[in-house]
Simulated assay, not measured.
Amino acid sequence: MDTPIHRIGIVLLIVILLGGCTWKQQKESAYPVSPQPVLPGEYFITHHLMTDQGMIRTSFAEQHIYLSESLGLWMDYLVRKKDQNSFDQQFGVLQDEFLLDHHLLSWQIESDQKSKANALVDDLRVVAALQKADRLWKNAAYQTTAKEIAQALKDKNMYRGILSDYYDASTNRTSHTITLSYLDPKAIKELESLKIFTKQMTSNQLTILKQAPRKKGFFPKSYDIKKKAYSFDREINMIDQLYTALHADRAKVNTSAIMKWLKTTFKKEGKLYGRYKLSTLQPSVTYESPSVYALVILYALKRNEPEFAKEVYDRMKELQIQDPLKDDYGGYMNEKDTHSFDNLLPLIAERELFNESVIQ
């Protein structure tokens, strides 16, 4: 029987269970931290996307696919949450499932088959997470693994002195293109702190960002290292563009034109779309993306725009299932399916808003 009292009872039970999950994580951790709430998105990931082995499914598809992207984002989140117990579980997943013989990560595992290719952006993200974890919890194994990955990136994943998109061990081929959104200065500087890169090598990578031409304030999609040429897409992929803007800002590149456009467009439309035509700056799709909003939030926080970050957060949360009685509570759903990226990135943004005291 579905009565108001019955519904209230169910809600209270879920709240108690969530609180219990939080308490259990804190109790088991060897390094007690201040209480951190289990966010709805975290609940969704651990209850709907994560397997018993700690692997994060990409979607609800019957054929499970696991990505190094999901692993890296989840590790990033756990460091921001200061949850060492869960981080160590993922450290085990990294070592047992994703690391290949040459110490790069398999970018995809499908039907228990590991791809022999990596994705630079994911490997860098994992290195950065391991380094942050080592500073927090002083576990030498984190840095040892980070250094092995970093060394492999230098040995296998560079073309003419520049980090490139991937290395494929099955063909022994290194890409000669670098997608600009992959060039995260914070992560690349970790290669320097590990003494794998020199300062000059770090500078050479960031020069690709710093010398990039603009069209209407926006960045190119990629740089062909062999041809020494930048390439623009006809459409602005907001995920790529926002990652690039965030990274460029960290590299002290002026990105104010993009921030101005974001604020003006959001104020006018009340939303942002997933793609825009570069020629007209009009939307080329009709969908909104929680990941786009998450990146806008992180970018706004980096640019010291907390009020704008909060406004975008409010819109992002409207896309999330927030009713605890729904089966997919906490998820960002696309009808009956979802994607790990569209849940992990918003979760990171939400945690960062808590960490910065923009929301409570």
Rank of each mutant, 00 (worst) to 15 (best):
M1L: 13
D2R: 15
I5W: 13
I8H: 14
I10T: 09
V11T: 12
V11L: 08
L12W: 09
L17E: 04
G20V: 01
S29M: 02
Y31S: 14
P32A: 13
V33C: 07
P37S: 10
V38S: 11
Y43I: 10
H47T: 15
H47K: 14
M50I: 02
T51S: 11
Q53M: 03
R57K: 15
Q63M: 01
Q63Y: 00
L67Q: 11
S68L: 02
Y77A: 06
V79P: 04
F87H: 13
D88W: 10
F91K: 09
F91R: 09
E97N: 12
F98M: 05
L100D: 03
H103W: 07
S106W: 05
I109P: 05
I109E: 04
I109T: 06
Q113S: 12
K114F: 03
N118C: 08
V121T: 09
R125H: 02
R125W: 00
V126C: 02
Q131D: 11
A133L: 03
R135A: 14
R135K: 15
A141E: 14
Y142D: 12
I149Y: 03
A150D: 02
A150M: 02
L153V: 01
K156D: 00
M158W: 00
I162C: 04
L163E: 02
Y166L: 08
R173N: 12
T174M: 10
L180I: 06
Y182G: 02
Y182T: 04
Y182L: 00
E190P: 07
L191C: 09
E192M: 14
S193Q: 15
K195N: 11
Q200S: 15
N204C: 01
N204W: 04
I208Q: 06
L209I: 07
K215S: 11
Y223R: 08
I225A: 10
K228W: 03
Y230M: 05
D233Q: 14
Q241C: 06
Q241V: 04
D249A: 15
K252T: 11
S256Y: 07
A257E: 13
M259A: 04
W261K: 06
T265E: 12
K267Q: 14
K271Q: 13
L272T: 04
R275V: 00
K277R: 14
V285M: 06
T286D: 09
T286M: 01
V296W: 05
K302Q: 15
P306Y: 09
P306A: 10
R315A: 12
R315G: 06
D323T: 14
D323C: 10
K326D: 11
G330Q: 04
G330F: 01
M333I: 01
N334H: 10
F341V: 09
N343H: 09
P346G: 03
A349Y: 08
A349I: 08
E350I: 02
I359M: 03
